[in-house]
Design a protein around this nucleic acid. Structure first.
Lengths: 346, 346
DNA sequence: GGATTCGCTGTGAGCGCTAACATGCCAGCG
DNA sequence: CGCTGGCATGTTAGCGCTCACAGCGAATCC
């Protein structure tokens, strides 16, 4: 930087001013400095700048399994938005998303000098850890988080589950069975709530939910159980992967989808239209969640710097995508084929 | 830091020594300093350290679509390995992975002060850009890369494709059709090569491949085309998503899998066992690719610092996972049922 | 015409840390 | 007994940048 100044015949400070776009630089000087920078192949050192200013223009993302479609897409959305806002993203992923791990990750990121942190949290315990996090650093929960007192950006899980359940009910199904996510997952619990309350409002019976873990395997097991019960005509599965497993189990049990059983998933993964049959599901706009959470975090940082009050979260609306895995409920014929002996209707 | 020193009755330098684990500190002093640090809630500032040492302990990852299973898993593997090695990961993702974008991303990361960069590259053009990248910074290509003169860590794509093709051939299929990835993808090209050379070696006819784009939709289209041709008995699809689409198309066309057509995918996504039918596929150990590429990069950084020669890449072996979508080829009966009128065999 | 303002530029200090050298101490040696 | 050498510590000088302030000439004002 001193070299550039020397070549351009100005002080290092003027060079700094040019870099930072100060307007107290005459056009002539500016272009002279620019030329010198070009000639010397000068590149500003952001570490030194960070040390001097205290701003690293870096944000942290804490996430557990970035292999899943949801977190991966969200991370992608975050990064793109961060790039646009002039921030860098450093990630801290980890296997388990429990209390200890999460605060350790936050700590690591803070030490590294991030200005704010996005936590893709999904665990109930993890959410509690957030409430105890050091208040010095702006924090935003993504996809799920504590119910209160914390900025959370997520899709409205209850509304999504309600959408799914109502769709099935509207199709004439007497009730809707449910395969849940893991018990500790916040999303999973909210989806259960949405499903249950919709059923209750409609005066439908609330069957015991089957517990899954987001994996296709657990959906498969649930599907085997459900296939045995001929009264089951509609299932709302808490994500698309499990729905795939359930579809598989139903197929093996020779239960036709959607003729015998209607199925609704959750997420709308890119493959959902190509399941057998194409899956009716609830779309979550993860990209939107990602970019919105970034915006909230950036505003929180600016708010803190200017001493304003902390930011609120934001809720993204889910969307019902109807495909071929759901159909109007039909009362099962009494016999397999041929005319029934006695023609009691109903 | 000065405060800590004052409280412990030593100089700031001794505090620094304690932090960095220098052994020229007496145990008594060390514990005194540690206690002072604890009491004051002192946290070392890594920015200042980076400025003084020139080492940021930060690595960059350039990636395009982290939504796909492969890159997402690799990224996850990289992060975990980086954590273990004491490095942070900052990501630079982008929509397109072409020449310009890739070097721009590398530039951004360099400015940000990363010590090395991992590029999850899959585009032919992108790979060329790597060869022209500034040599000052250690760079490793992940998943794919230039054929020569560059450290690349990837799964052996040719071997994987050969494994798939040979499996089908061994099952007695006269030849194997192929649905490819996008034309610009390096992996896609290598898989084509592996498939073609295996066919040629076996003296089998090489049918024209159908071009896909990794998406399930394109697999579906290819499936429709292939379903029309009754001579098609075996298909090697370049990834599992497209295989899913193809399965769907075959199902719609009432071509039974595997009885009429055997299908092999690539990747072994977690859902593959639950496709209808469960998919035979080639497993890529993305986690291994991620951690191995990190190790290569770290060694490259150390090698540069100590003036040694640059590091070589590394190849991970793929694995054939046999499930229910492949079966031994049977000569189709001449008529649908009943005894054939004339019994020409073959 | 001297005081005031404004636009442009330079000076010095310091962000928090580490590297290199300097210092003082004690043991061991001939 | 003085000399060497290892050890624990202190001192000084930066790393490359920005901030606060000072300076200086030209334009503006009464």
């Amino acid at each position: 930087m001193a070299d550039v100044g020397r070549l351009a015949g100005v002080s290092h400070q003027t060079v700094s001013r040019v870099i930072n776009g100060s307007r107290h630089v005459s056009p002539a000087t500016r272009s002279r400095v620019l030329a010198a920078m070009e000639q010397l192949g000068y590149r500003p050192n952001s570490i030194a700048r960070a040390l001097a200013t205290g701003h690293t223009k870096t944000l942290g993302v804490v996430s557990s399994d970035t292999t899943l479609y949801g977190p991966a897409s969200t991370l992608f959305g975050i990064e793109r938005a961060a790039h646009l806002a002039g921030y860098f993203i450093v990630i801290a992923s980890m296997k388990a998303l429990d209390r200890g791990t999460i605060s350790e990750a936050i700590d690591r990121l803070r030490l590294q000098g991030v200005e704010g942190i996005l936590v893709i949290v999904s665990d109930v315990e993890g959410a509690e850890a957030l409430l105890e996090a050091p208040p010095e650093i702006p924090l935003v929960a993504v996809e799920a988080g504590p119910e209160q007192g914390f900025p959370v950006v997520s899709v409205d899980q209850r509304a999504g589950a309600a959408l799914a359940t109502r769709h099935l009910l509207d199709l004439g199904h007497p009730t809707v069975h449910h395969v849940t996510g893991p018990p500790n997952s916040i999303e999973s619990r909210l989806r259960i709530e949405g499903w249950r309350s919709t059923l209750e409002q409609a005066g439908a019976e609330v069957p015991a939910p089957l517990i899954g873990d987001w994996g296709a395997q657990s959906g498969y097991h649930a599907g085997r159980r459900l296939a045995r019960d001929r009264a089951v005509s509609a299932v709302f599965v808490a994500n698309d992967q499990m729905a795939l497993g359930l579809l598989r189990a139903m197929h093996e049990a020779e239960r036709q989808i959607p003729d015998d059983v209607s199925v609704v998933g959750f997420d709308d993964v890119p493959e959902a239209p190509f399941f057998t049959p194409p899956l009716t599901t609830i779309r979550q706009d993860f990209g939107e969640v990602g970019s919105r959470s970034l915006a909230v975090l950036v505003r929180a940082i600016e708010a803190r710097d200017s001493g304003r009050r902390p930011e609120e979260g934001s809720i993204v609306a889910p969307e019902l995508i109807i495909r071929a895995s759901t159909i109007a409920h039909r009362v099962r014929p009494a016999a397999h084929s041929g005319a029934p002996v006695d023609s009691r209707s109903m």
